[in-house]
């Protein structure tokens, strides 16, 4: 088990966005997280990655309690993520976005960095090579030297995934990775996610689009901040409670 979450709760003033969620994530699986708008999915990711502190509950990653750690510390531990609204480094090129995301493995100390020593240059050469490989994986190699802000929405989303891969995560959190993409880009991204998973990276992904359920080993449904059902994609599709809470309200693909 790579991640264990116990009684995770977040109150925003009077609103309980996440309410006593327990989830166990197995090593190497692809876990789908679905639920209607406002169910608390993004908040759940923000809690795991330390963007916001939880009100209550525990987050245990690889047997270590990581509750209350800062986002950059979480990244160092090997949890990568993308964001729903997908912020980037807009004024960097696509390649620079990925290179800048290599902060941890390898990491040069300040002296090597300042004096541009052989150690630093070796690290940077390795980073360049790895970055190009990641861009190849997500299919952005051809636009590597263009500014990130000038890329179409789908490319920017894939760049978000590329960036998260740069930290060499063992756990990857994807917040609506295919929302707003065209069918080609969707196929491309799903392929990249599959290949990442085959490399042994555990993935939790949030999606409204039911297509993504195909690649999940297991799906958790949340509504009003609570876990309502958990099961295989097939079971979830047929579960009457899910149909009522989620599918019944229409396939909403906002954002």
């Amino acid at each position: 088990m790579i991640l264990e979450i116990n009684g995770l709760t977040k109150n925003f003033g009077g609103l309980t966005a996440v309410s006593g969620i327990d989830i166990k994530v197995n090593d190497g699986e692809v876990l789908g997280l679905i639920g209607p708008n406002g169910a608390g999915k993004s908040t759940f990711f923000n809690l795991i990655t330390g963007v916001i502190p939880p009100t209550k509950g525990k987050i245990i990653f690889k047997g270590k309690d990581i509750t209350g750690k800062r986002p950059h510390e979480i990244a160092e531990l090997g949890i990568g993520r993308t964001f729903q609204l997908n912020p980037l480094f807009p004024n960097f090129t696509v390649l620079q976005n990925v290179i800048s995301s290599f902060q941890i493995r390898p990491r040069s100390n300040w002296l090597d960095t300042f004096f541009n020593t052989p150690v630093y240059r070796k690290n940077e050469a390795y980073i360049l090579e790895q970055s190009l490989e990641i861009l190849n994986l997500v299919g952005l190699y051809k636009v590597k030297d263009e500014l990130a802000k000038n890329q179409p929405h789908g490319y920017q989303k894939m760049l978000g995934v590329a960036r998260a891969l740069a930290i060499k995560p063992s756990l990857l959190l994807l917040d609506e990775p295919i929302a707003g993409m065209n069918p080609d880009e969707i196929d491309n991204t799903i392929e990249a996610i599959k290949r990442t998973s085959q490399r042994g990276v555990t993935i939790i992904l949030v999606e409204h689009n039911m297509k993504i359920l195909e690649i999940c080993n297991r799906v958790v449904v949340i509504n009003f901040g609570q876990k309502i059902v958990e099961g295989s994609p097939q079971e979830i599709k047929e579960n009457p409670e899910v149909i009522r809470a989620y599918l019944g309200s229409g396939h909403d693909t906002k954002h």
Binding site: R81, F83, P87, L88, F89, P90, N91, R163
Partner: peptide, 12 residues
């Protein structure tokens, strides 16, 4: 450019 992205990749 983005403190959210920076911190998510390990920049303190």
């Amino acid at each position: 450019q983005s403190y959210l992205v920076s911190s998510s990749v390990g920049i303190s």
